[in-house]
């Protein structure tokens, strides 16, 4: 008897409205006002790029949206749940089951082989080892890195490591993927491929993506961009 996978679990109501909305978020770190009245509305399956200068508050905004950091003021609605006031256990359950994370640094556990790294989110959701690793293997193959499954992250090339991280972010079939500069600089063919895999897989599975980047060519993979400047959001660019 296996536990239900995240997919079988009840999801936020499938309505036409946005999946995630944030309104008037403020966040200060000491005297630094990292966010002031930042807002965003993320549609189902929509890929939005957050752009802006260094220190403008992009990562802070992303962390708030993902329920990692609690804003000082404002409201975040995810499928009818107010993330700003949700109790911690509720938030961590959401993060484990509904959200996928893709950050630039320190995301893979160095002691674990890649396949276990990818299976980890499933294991944390209570799935048994064998089926979790089978799924992880499939995901690694899909991302063209099936051959590093048994290697530890330290033995992977930078590009392979990025793909393993993408596999881990997508393994739970998240509703929203939060990616913070996931490819670093896009001057390699690999970076483009990783981005392509991320956005293609997200589009296939109907996941929404919030993609922090200051690279225009990365942002061009999104449906639209939201500019963050001095902790404020500026929503001008609209895709089709």
């Amino acid at each position: 008897m296996t536990r239900p996978t995240p997919r079988d679990r009840p999801r936020p109501e499938d309505t036409d409205g946005p999946l995630l909305t944030a309104y008037g978020l403020n966040k200060a770190f000491g005297l630094t006002q990292a966010l002031s009245t930042a807002s965003l509305s993320l549609g189902r399956g929509e890929i939005v790029a957050l752009m802006g200068p260094s220190g403008s508050g992009k990562s802070t905004f992303l962390h708030c949206l993902a329920g990692v950091v609690r804003p000082d003021a404002g409201r975040i609605d995810y499928g009818g749940v107010d993330l700003t006031h949700a109790p911690d256990p509720r938030l961590s359950a959401l993060r484990r089951t509904e959200f996928g994370f893709l950050f630039q640094f320190g995301q893979l556990v160095p002691e674990l082989p890649c396949v276990e790294n990818v299976a980890l989110p499933l294991r944390l959701n209570g799935q048994r080892r064998r089926p979790a690793e089978r799924e992880a293997t499939r995901m690694l193959e899909r991302l063209d890195v099936g051959d590093v499954a048994r290697k530890r992250p330290g033995a992977c090339s930078g590009g392979q490591g990025q793909r393993v991280a993408v596999a881990r972010a997508l393994i739970t079939r998240p509703r929203v993927v939060f990616a913070d500069e996931p490819t670093g600089a896009l001057d390699s063919l690999n970076g483009e491929k990783v981005l392509r895999l991320l956005t293609d897989t997200a589009r296939e599975s109907g996941a929404s993506v919030v993609l922090v980047t200051h690279e225009p060519r990365v942002a061009a993979y999104a449906d639209r961009e939201v500019i963050v400047r001095d902790g404020r959001t500026l929503d001008i660019g609209g895709g089709r």
Partner: peptide, 20 residues
């Protein structure tokens, strides 16, 4: 600058789609 950035990115999105 903001309006121009939006215009540029719009065209970049189209090119990215075409590239794909």
């Amino acid at each position: 600058l903001d309006v121009q950035r939006a215009e540029h990115l719009q065209q970049m999105r189209e090119l990215t789609r075409r590239k794909a």
